[in-house]
């Protein structure tokens, strides 16, 4: 379980929140604090006060995979294969293991054909897939994904969804603006103005958002 208590960071205020294992999706208006919350969960930022504990330890004591919505900010190496391998190389993994794991992970997200390509020549969506492979390659316990799907087409998004569910990560915390994707989560949070206004399984959270643009279109079609 991820336990959040008395968390304060910039405009974010969360008194008490528990996130179960599985996929947690975060939705809400632009500027509401979603990315800030993800950065805290990933250990990239430290709370000003309060705590986030992932199975009893802080995020930076946990293996975390992070995917930025704008992956250009995180790219370190010139080729796709080297970028995916970076986490394993920083951990001094054996070369033969690195090659095998890079190939397997690239296959999982459908980018084996890009391994020798120049990172600078990747499209926006391809960069997201590379960043996702780099995050998955070391089998982290926690995956934190910031609007990773905003640059993916329908087929790619479906492939990535399958990859996430087979990643072995205990916790996947993701921000998405695709409500159909959010509907397929174990836990859903709606954040607005720095506060978690709704939390729970998708059905009751979306019921609270009925009549707003955040209510899934497919659910409206069923009405």
């Amino acid at each position: 379980m991820i336990n959040i208590n008395a968390l304060r960071f910039r405009s974010l205020e969360i008194d008490h929140l528990n996130l179960p294992p599985g996929i947690t999706s975060i939705i809400g208006p632009n500027g509401s604090g979603k990315t800030t919350f993800l950065r805290l969960c990933a250990g990239i930022a430290e709370p000003e006060s309060g705590a986030i504990l992932i199975d009893g330890v802080s995020p930076h004591q946990t293996e975390v995979g992070w995917v930025n919505e704008f992956p250009d900010k995180n790219i370190l190496f010139p080729t796709v294969a080297n970028e995916i391998a970076s986490t394993l190389r920083f951990a001094f993994a054996p070369c033969e293991d690195i090659d095998r794991m890079v190939t397997a992970t690239a296959d999982l997200v459908g980018i084996n054909h890009l391994l020798s390509r120049d990172m600078r020549k990747m499209s926006g969506g391809e960069k997201v897939l590379v960043a996702l492979a780099a995050a998955l390659v070391h089998h982290p316990a926690v995956l934190v994904l910031d609007e990773y799907d905003s640059h993916l087409d329908m087929n790619c998004a479906a492939l990535v969804e399958t990859a996430l569910r087979h990643s072995g990560a205990t916790y996947i915390i993701r921000c998405t603006q695709q409500m159909e994707t959010a509907a397929h989560s174990d836990c859903l949070l709606y954040i607005d103005q720095g506060k978690v206004l709704h939390a729970g399984t998708p059905a009751p959270v979306f019921a609270s958002l009925s009549g707003t643009a955040f209510y899934p279109c497919s659910w409206r079609c069923r009405k």
Binding site: G124, E147, Q177, A213, F214
Partner: peptide, 13 residues
Amino acid sequence: DEPFSSLDCAEKE
């Protein structure tokens, strides 16, 4: 080019 990426649902509309 991808005008809707990063926008919330209400803003897309």
